[in-house]
Each structure stands twice: as C-alpha cells, then as structure tokens.
Nucleic acid binder design. Sequence first.
DNA 1: TATGCGTGGGT
DNA 2: TACCCAAGCAT
Length: 355
Amino acid sequence: MTTDSFAEQLLAWYDQHGRHNLPWHNNRTAYRVWVSEIMLQQTQVATVVPYYQAFMERFPNVEALAEAPVDDVLSYWSGLGYYARARNLQTAAQTVVEDFGGLFPETQEELEGLKGIGRSTAAAIIAQAFGKRAAILDGNVKRVLARYHAVPGWPGQTRVLNQLWEHAEAHTPDTRVRDYTQGIMDLGAMVCTRSRPACTDCPLQTGCKAYAREEIHLYPGSRPKKAKPEKTTWMLILEDKEGRVLLERRPPSGIWGGLWSLPEIDPAYGAEELQAACEHNLGLDCTEPELIRGFRHTFSHYHLHIQPARLSVAGEHTLRDNGQHKWLHRHEALSLGLPAPIRALLATPDQAILL
DNA sequence: TATGCGTGGGT
DNA sequence: TACCCAAGCAT
C-alpha cells in the first residue's frame, strides 16, 4: 500500500502539532513501549504519566519486573484500575525472560501470545518500538475513522469494529509508521475529540464524510443504554488493641482481583449478625459493630453501596489465617495495593454512627 | 460474541 | 448529579 493522502496530511499535521515528548517517547525500547501501552489501555495519558515514571524507576527492565513480588507490582498499579493488566504484565514479563531470552518477539502473532497483549497493543509495539508497519485501532483511531468514513453503529459491535479495522489497515502507510500511529492517536485526542471537535483545525477535514454531512455528532455510534444494577456490601474495619486493621487479600479474579482490601461480608447478613459472622468466618471475638457512613461507588456496569462497619477485636485473637490476611496500622495498609475507595475509606477518620 | 473489569475527567 | 467514556483484553 502506498502512502495515500490521508497519511500524508496526517503526518504533516503531526510534525507541527503532535505530541513528541511523552515519557515513553524517550529511549523507545520494546519494554518501555510495552509498559506504556498496557497502562494506556482505557486510561488517559494524564493519568498514566506519574504511574509510568514511578513504575519504570522501580522496574527498569523486563528482568526486574519478572522477578519482583507480585504485591510490589500491584502496589505500583494501585489507583490505575483494571488490575488484571498488572498481573498479566508480570506474567508476560516472565514469559519474555524464560521463553524469549529477555528479548521481546517482533511478530504480531508472538506478541499477541503474551498475556494482556491483543491486536492493537501488539501493533502499537511493532510500530512504536520496531518501526515496522502495523495497523492500530484504539479509541482515538476509532473515532477518527468512524467520522472520516461515516461508519454507522457502535464500535462495540463486532461488525462495526471489523469495518474500522479495515479502514485502519488501508490507511496505514509503509513509511514513517511510528509517526503515523502516534499522529492519528494525537489527532483523536487533541482535534477529533469526543465532544466539540476542532474540525477547523483538522488536516483531514476535506475528505471527512461526517463533516461534509454536518453529522460529526453522530459518530461513532453510542453504546446501547442499560440500567446499572445497585449492589451493596459490608466492609469490616476490624481493629485490634494496638489499633491495627485486618486486611484481606481478594480472590485472584473478579473485582479488585488480587488486591488487598478490607474483609467483605455478604450483604445477606444483617447488622446484628456481623458479630457472629466475624466469629464464624474469621474466628475472631469482636465487639458489636459501629456503622460508619456508607458511600456509593460507581463501576462500569453497576453501582456498589459500600457499608463499612467497625468492630474491635477482643484479647488474643485466634485468626483463622490462610495466608490471605494481615494486621497492619492504617499508614502501613495505605502502602499496599488497595482499591481506590478502600484507600479513601482508610485514609479518612471514621465518623462513627452508633446503631 | 457479549460481558466483566477501575478510575477519573468531561459535560 | 448522573451519565458517558477513555491508548482494550480475556473469557
């Protein structure tokens, strides 16, 4: 495929207006590009930058990441969300060290074989790190292409997604792939934005079908609306005599998988049953619970009402430990990989409301 | 193939 | 306030 005018216009714009100094643009090793691409999945650049800097300082190369305790990796990911990315990142690092001698593979197929790397991320690594031709399709590119070609429908649908991939492949040039892939993402982030796009500044305006029809706002199609279910849960703040709090490691899958958090109790238990639940589930002898002001946390697919309850643990505790618990002072707990709302809860002084 | 997975920003 | 969505992938 020769460079069509789409790519030429885009590259000319990128040279003048694109972002050329993001942290992962310096010293573009496959490792550094890869970490940035994983962090940037569903996550905005401004959010990623400080995490990226700290992460690269602690895990400067793939070997350091491969051999680190998983708790270290998760603690550096704490607050970024989508924690499976962090677990997959370390798994993939171990694969690169053990199966590829510490060097990243350079083919689409081999890269996609690594945990957490899909079609678009593999392509981004190939283009950014190796300078070889590969088409990417992230949220920015989807928006640009959906508008440019007036592709109807929601990109979450496979049929729509496939059309966008075809356009992405068709426009990707043979030369300057690195700049092109960065450029089309920059255009989506800076000009072809979701709301109020700056079409007057757009290098692709003349060929843009949605612009010609004055229908920019129709593309890309929006996700079908769905009511978010409301869920509720108990979170226990169990304190011993020294003022330490009981932390519990969450199961490896599901929400906040693998993170340390507060012990969670099934909402089917009433407040008056929490004391018994502590004895039954954890083997702890507790005082009656004090309810702390609850709060609602919104996820992509549901709302979760988190109802904290504080209980004091009496005397010598005989915790039924399976390696998934630890007693820590609050300031120690905050250095763990905690879910954001739990971190906020522990950082705030309890405002107890007696039953 | 449709859904689950986090958090913060924009409107 | 409440909703939408963002440098997607795994299952």
